[in-house]
Amino acid sequence: MRKLQVQGVHHITLTGADRQTSIDFWEGVLGMPFVFDQPNLDNPDEGHLYFDPGDGRLITIFTNETRKADRRRTPTDPGCVHHLAFNVSRATFLQVEARLEARGIGHSGPKDRGFMDSIYFKDPLGLLIELACYKFEPPMGCTHADVMIEAHRRRVAAGDHHIQEVHLADAIEHLVEMRQQSLSSDRLPKNPYV
C-alpha cells in the first residue's frame, strides 16, 4: 500500500449564491483578485468564479442567480467546514477591526492564539472566515510548518498547555542552528558585556 502524497492545496470550491454577492465579498471585502470566470462544467445552470487569495492558489465559487444569500451560520456538523482562515500581514491585522466595523460587519475581536493572532467574522452566506497573522517569520529556507512542529515539541517537553512566543523563539533559534553552518565550534549563548 502506498500514499497519495499531496503537495499543497490546489483550490477550495464553495457553493455561493448569486454572482455579484461572491464578487463583492471575495474581491470587494477580502481583496482577492477575480482571475477567472467560466460556467460550472458539471452544471450548466451555475457559474464558476475563481479568486486568488494572495498565494497563487485559488478559491472558487459556484454561483447561481436563483440562490440568495442566507446569513445564518453554516452547519458545523461532522464533515462540514468549520471555517476558512486567510493570512494577513501585521499591518493589515491591526486595521481589521476598524475596517469590518466601517462596513457594519460583526466580528469576534482579536484572539491571541499563542503563535498567531486571529479575528473571525461571517461571509454573506454564514461561512465563518478567520483572518490570521503569524507572530513570527520562519528562518530563511524554513516554512511556518517547520517552526510549528519544533515549537510543538518544545511546548510538550515543557508541559505547557499551548504554544507561546518562547516556544516559537526557541524553535527558530534551533532551526537556524541546524540549517546554517558556522565557523564557531561553540555556538552556545555568550555574554560579551561581563
Rank of each mutant, 00 (worst) to 15 (best):
L4Y: 05
V6L: 02
V9I: 15
I12P: 02
G16K: 13
Q20S: 15
F25S: 09
E27F: 05
E27P: 06
V29Q: 13
L30V: 12
M32T: 09
M32P: 13
N40R: 03
L41H: 07
L41T: 10
L41D: 08
N43K: 05
P44W: 00
Y50L: 00
P53G: 03
I59R: 03
I59V: 15
K68V: 06
R71P: 15
R73P: 01
P75S: 09
D77A: 13
D77R: 06
P78T: 05
G79Q: 11
H82N: 13
L84R: 03
A85L: 08
N87I: 09
F93A: 02
L94F: 07
E97F: 02
E97H: 12
E97S: 14
R99T: 09
A102F: 08
R103Q: 15
G104R: 08
I105Y: 05
I105K: 01
G106D: 15
G106C: 11
H107T: 13
G114H: 01
M116H: 06
D117W: 11
S118Y: 00
S118C: 00
D123A: 02
D123P: 06
L125G: 12
L128E: 14
I129G: 08
E130R: 01
E130N: 10
E130D: 12
E130I: 00
A132S: 15
C133T: 15
Y134R: 08
K135H: 15
P138F: 08
P139L: 07
P139Y: 04
G141I: 03
G141S: 04
C142N: 12
T143C: 04
H144V: 04
V147E: 11
E150N: 10
A151V: 10
H152F: 04
A157G: 08
G159R: 02
H162W: 06
Q164K: 01
E165T: 00
H167T: 00
H167Q: 01
L168E: 05
A171D: 14
I172H: 03
E173H: 05
E173W: 03
L175D: 11
V176G: 04
M178A: 15
M178K: 13
R179E: 15
Q181P: 04
S184G: 06
R187D: 11
P189L: 07
K190S: 06
K190V: 05
